[in-house]
Design a protein around this nucleic acid. Structure first.
Lengths: 377, 377
DNA sequence: ACGCAAAATGACAGCGCTGTCATTTATGGC
DNA sequence: GCCATAAATGACAGCGCTGTCATTTTGCGT
């Protein structure tokens, strides 16, 4: 049964309820029903066949310009919208991509997601969100099931899933198009940030403030980002003529708590660092917590900086010096590359732009002429 | 053209590529193709008609138990999954609901979203995410377009959209099922929290710590939550025998910045509050910021508490006393009520359970406020 | 004008399911 | 055992599009 309200009267969007077999159904000829126009209606109004309308709607070639315009006119006047299921069924494409993620920070994911939605909506694709446990034993199976069950046209993978080698291999085997956000292996469609250079610039900045003992808290070992940021940290030390000191580098997990633990360890050293560069904002917030706990004032006694520019970085005291990662743009770019891959068979790996955000949590090393940073909002 | 890899060999999931017209296509009879089973295949294996298989898959009545089992067996052995588009097209239902949101906090939304996804997935519904500007002039139109374009079966509305009266009215007119998360008007399907009682309990707690001047920062005026929390604040004062003082109640916007602004105003009073209850965690974080700025130590000089128990509340110093809102559960409940409404024509308004989280930002009222800087103590 | 290739358009048969309704099979009362 | 009734099952025609391929129209060289 078609669900639609019965309305008396006529306008462009009304027509007699007539079945394909020609019989009117349960209504006298004068009662009409508001009903979505079908491609056939558009064709009739434009004086062409349904197939030609289909051509116009799908940007297929070989339609004369005046015909196209006439059809678009009819589409507008009937407020016609193609039925997604009918389209999918007939064309054997779902116009559906999935965004796979495993438990990253909500604000990061929300931003990426917004970008993906924006890009997909613009190209009339739907997005299916799929929180997943990438460490689960049935992970691969789950993804394959998802693809076949929902007839996905493609996938967008976010860290740490974008580094899941078995999955990438399987997707290539299956021929399923995919795009990665910040993957370790850049040999696929997607988007990356030059995190190594960003981390390097941050360390150089700290060194320029006079810091000589700069600590680093490494991110989660399964994220490619952790390694890039660590490499960048080393680059920065080298560029600033500072010695790498393994005692000042502690493993973290990208979580607030792991930042607290790592900072406690570092601050307990005989010669603790005067600045700590955490591989993300959550851990940096943990460092500030640990500093407070240890009776240290940030940035007076300890400079702290993070990575990502999450909302958190502006919502703690002092506000966090960090590196802005344009997550929304990155989501958009990844989606666009995926759609390109679906359409043209190949997408590119695009590089997004980072930016240093100098805020209140970093300052000149004590003992040197002080230069206040703005602590404002 | 059907997209499917050509594979040699046979197993339960393979069959000759045969068109409905009976002609084999482009392949010799020995080459076979891995291809999703169709309902017809299941029917053949189970020795019934496709329609009976359909009955089993859709939990329709009037199927003998042994027939059902035989069919389920065939479904498993063929790894059959119904084609979503074919189902939608034939049944005129999309099995798709949309989650509408407008810019709430990412962590809140992510949690709600997870709950919604979980519940919908369990009932084999898809979720479409729709960030929207509820204040835009074309808002209603956009939503209507969304419904008709995607053939949505229903909507889940989150604050502040759940309080958008014109939208609710229109949805009822259209007969579109919907469920609300924390709506002001509880006369619909959805989920709420007894925020008023929660706020009251929080204020009573503060009073029990000896606070007599307890300030409140009101949330965004368009959110029902703001009013409930304010009412609860007044209830709590009354229950504790404290006088309501309009100077201690300041309008905020639910944002961090608005919390800073409101707290500055309150702390500048001749007789400032000794405790501030902000209507959400973001504003409470702003209060802590402003307190630091004013040289006050939290909780020594000022107790601060929030509402929502966002991740932020555990990632600032001191950690925030707040009220836990089970967002994930709420998302799940809202989705389940929507699906009930879609199925049975009516859903319920369910009440979720809050919990007070007593953490480091609140303490006994001091004998006398000291004016030292909080950091480094 | 004519002929021919290329461009434009149309006819038609499904895509894989479910709604409707007809038909067959079980159940129960006597 | 027989019929009335209910339960179980099946036949069949679409749902609204697009792929394929046939047909018509156009453009253009001669």
């Amino acid at each position: 049964m078609r669900w639609l309200p019965v309305i008396a009267g006529t306008d462009a969007r009304m027509r007699p309820v007539e079945r394909a077999d020609g019989a009117f159904r349960n209504f006298t000829a004068t009662i009409q029903v508001a009903m979505r126009a079908r491609i056939e209606d558009v064709a009739r109004v434009a004086g062409v066949s349904p197939k030609t309308v289909s051509r116009v709607l799908n940007d297929e070639p070989n339609v004369r310009e005046d015909t196209r315009l006439r059809i678009l006119q009819a589409v507008r006047s009937l407020d016609y919208r193609p039925h997604p299921s009918a389209r999918s069924l007939a064309s054997n494409r779902s116009f559906l991509v999935a965004l796979l993620y495993d438990n990253p920070s909500p604000s990061y994911m929300m931003e990426v997601q917004d970008g993906v939605l924006e890009a997909c909506e613009a190209q009339r694709y739907s997005v299916m969100l799929q929180p997943l446990d990438a460490t689960g034993p049935r992970f691969l199976e789950q993804v394959e099931q998802l693809i076949s069950e929902r007839r996905l046209d493609g996938l967008i993978l976010t860290p740490p899933i974008s580094d899941h080698a078995p999955l990438l291999r399987r997707l290539r085997e299956l021929g399923t198009p995919f795009a990665c956000v910040a993957p370790r292996d850049r040999n696929c469609a997607g988007v990356v940030l030059d995190e190594r250079r960003a981390a390097c610039e941050m360390v150089v900045h700290l060194a320029s403030l006079g810091h000589q003992r700069i600590g680093h808290i490494i991110g989660h070992p399964d994220h490619g980002a952790s390694i890039w940021r660590l490499d960048g940290y080393r680059d920065g030390l080298a560029q600033s003529g500072l010695q790498y000191d393994a005692r000042l580098v502690v493993q973290g997990q990208f979580s607030f708590d792991s930042g607290v633990v790592a900072a406690r360890a570092m601050l307990a050293l005989p010669l603790p660092p005067t600045a700590i560069f955490a591989a993300n904002d959550d851990m940096a917030a943990g460092v500030i917590w640990a500093a407070n706990e240890a009776g240290l004032a940030v940035p007076r006694d300890l400079s702290v900086c993070g990575f990502d520019d999450t909302p958190l970085s502006r919502q703690i005291w002092p506000s966090l010096t960090t590196i802005h990662q344009p997550c929304r743009d990155m989501g958009r770019i990844a989606a666009n590359q995926l759609l390109r891959a679906i359409r043209d068979g190949e997408g590119a790996m695009v590089s997004a732009k980072f930016a240093l955000c100098l805020r209140g949590s970093t300052a000149r090393v004590p003992g040197r002429p002080a230069k206040e940073h703005a602590l404002g909002l």
